[in-house]
Design a binder for these strands. Structure first.
Lengths: 355, 355
DNA sequence: CGGGCGTACTGTATCGATCCAGAAGGTACT
DNA sequence: AGTACCTTCTGGATCGATACAGTACGCCCG
């Protein structure tokens, strides 16, 4: 039998409560006795209070759940996601909490829902989960604090989130390109359509895009480009099957191989933009001269690649998400955080070459 | 008050056990009653059995803990680690388990130890944790199944691990370079010395290296190079502060800027090797011609960079680690897995240019 | 018609801790 | 001496579920 509090208590000849206090409230008993208890625990091989039992009684688990889409692999593929995770992990660590990764596979929604139901956590952080995923209902019904890693479309006054003004940030990208004279423009994005395929698509209106972040970013692109007279209908939309470098390149191919090749390609994430740059390189096209390319997020690789992009504070975003969960501010207004963004202009964008 | 099993039971007019069965053993009651119970649960907003209470009673948590060194950030920085995690996550998902990340910061060992003590998990996977870390004692005393992601130095017959023959794999690298005629050789590695600094170091004997994996790889390098008459004393050792691309470049600088520049640089991971390639590029040196470079792991980027390296099945390694924890084989021998490795020769290595 | 058996549900003990009211004993103050 | 108070430790109630033995009842079969 594994030793429990009682085992140790009997060995020392004190009550269960006292042993418990030796671990959880050391100031409640004399140093001598405490040492005696710890010594006995060592001798008996008692590893300390059982985390599960403690959680049940205390009503606190010491872990926060992070919900991801598309299995776990995606989460680790995008450096932006990694930075976000790092931020939240650092905060969690400081509060003595762990991080429970809850992957929500798209193919088996039910499995993900079960996972959320069974997750022993004190709160949820929802990262890049589309608003229609059934798992979100479960997080709600569990009644645990939940923070979204982006501003949800229908955010009530009591939903916590930390995000950015997606549309406004994207608008600066669009208007930057408009001012550089770009009129033939393609957009590379995932989630433009519900299907996970790579290729050109047509979407009558940005409002049709179901995934919040994508919709807002595209809306912003279009608004900014409108300054140059480019309308939504003029945009060449290329859907990427996933947010990956390879799919970015694949999607861009459809735009770059056209007779009326666009002069600018706006990608909805840096990872996709790096793929677009790959596609340019494969065709001997020069970024910023033959074709301008923009990204979104400003991951470390973006600087190395000279990519014009939107910088958003990823680590800080994660850190704030963690703080909202583990130490929520009194003021409800402070539970909805919008972080600042910057347009970082690098070599990948330039004026349209005149003929 | 939050609803519990009892709340639902009272509402429906059945016993608590029956409601429990409705969730956990649906075949134990009539479909009609089960539906009635679920309906009542929905109405009352009961989210299903509390995971913590269930865990306590069942004695199973439904999560496995993954121990990491150097905060969490490192874990996500190395693509190799990411692939390993993916493998273990896939297995966990199939078994209905989650993944609890337990960061062990180096600076505050005590915090990490507490985290391990409090982790509500069914088993531990130890990934790249140096053998002397105090947290390992705690995993042992908790008496949970534990699997190491590499063969530990003093592995008894009952320690589970999934690893590779580090020394043998490294030997093939060394002998490959010896055959190409390399005699002036540098090694870039982290953990050569306990201090986390980047620069040249001297180590009298590989046995002095405390970190198991590093020691074995270096031993292997040396053995392979010995075929060309290169002894341990002839190796130029460059320590990298961390397993990162930047530190790889930093460490390589010390070797490349010498008057008697080595003709080959062996890195102990691909990530470091990519940094070495960066350092070459910054000096206008051609990999495989001016200086040969090798890595270890064969991360996806290695192929793109044309890096000669050791391929080891990362995802599979993670998957096996997961299986060992969640579904341990009867046969004790099957609990110690050594996976095969291959030397993948690419353009980054070539014969020494003769003068 | 009664023994055997399967299905549907109940009730109590239990998992391993923490919380909290309170007892015992000692000290200090009036 | 009496009262108040602090420190140190105790014991029972409790967190929310699951396991398991047991009850009740209907059905089949020789």
């Amino acid at each position: 039998m594994k030793p429990t509090l009682q085992t140790v208590a009997d060995a020392v000849g004190v009550s269960r409560s006292t042993v418990s206090n030796a671990y959880s409230r050391p100031d409640q008993l004399s140093p001598a006795l405490r040492e005696k208890i710890h010594e006995a625990a060592r001798r008996l091989g008692y590893p300390g209070p059982d985390p599960t039992a403690r959680s049940l009684r205390r009503g606190r688990v010491g872990a926060i759940g992070v919900l991801f889409t598309s299995a776990l692999s995606y989460a680790f593929t995008d450096p932006y996601a990694v930075q976000f995770l790092r931020g939240i992990a650092e905060t969690a660590e400081r509060h003595g909490s762990g991080l429970l990764l809850v992957p929500l596979s798209e193919s088996e929604e039910e499995a993900g829902i079960q996972a959320v139901r069974n997750a022993a956590v004190d709160g949820f952080c929802v990262y890049c989960v589309p608003a229609w995923h059934g798992a979100l209902d479960v997080t709600r019904s569990r009644g645990l604090p939940t923070v979204a890693a982006e501003r949800p479309a229908g955010a009530g006054p009591d939903t916590m989130y930390v995000g950015i003004d997606e549309a406004a940030a994207a608008r600066t990208v669009g208007s930057h390109l408009a001012r550089l004279g770009h009129r033939r423009v393609a957009v590379v994005s995932d989630f433009l359509v519900p299907q996970r395929r790579t290729g050109p698509v047509s979407v009558a209106d940005p409002a049709e895009i179901r995934y919040d972040v994508t919709r807002e970013r595209l809306r912003g692109f279009a608004e900014g480009l409108a300054e140059g007279g480019v309308g939504w209908q003029d945009l060449l939309l290329c859907n990427a099957g996933a947010n990956s470098r390879a799919d970015g390149a694949g999607a861009a191919a459809y735009a770059l191989d056209r007779a009326d090749r666009p002069t600018a390609v706006l990608a909805v994430t840096d990872l996709l933009a790096l793929g677009v740059l790959d596609a340019l390189a494969a065709r001997g096209l020069r970024p910023g001269r033959d074709v301008s390319v923009t990204g979104f997020d400003d991951i470390p690789e973006a600087a190395a690649a000279g990519l014009t992009t939107i910088r958003q504070p990823a680590v800080e975003k994660g850190a704030i998400a963690g703080r909202l969960l583990l130490d929520p501010p009194e003021d409800p207004a402070a539970r909805q955080v919008l972080l600042p963004t910057d347009l970082v202009v690098r070599a990948s964008t330039g004026p349209v070459e005149r003929k």
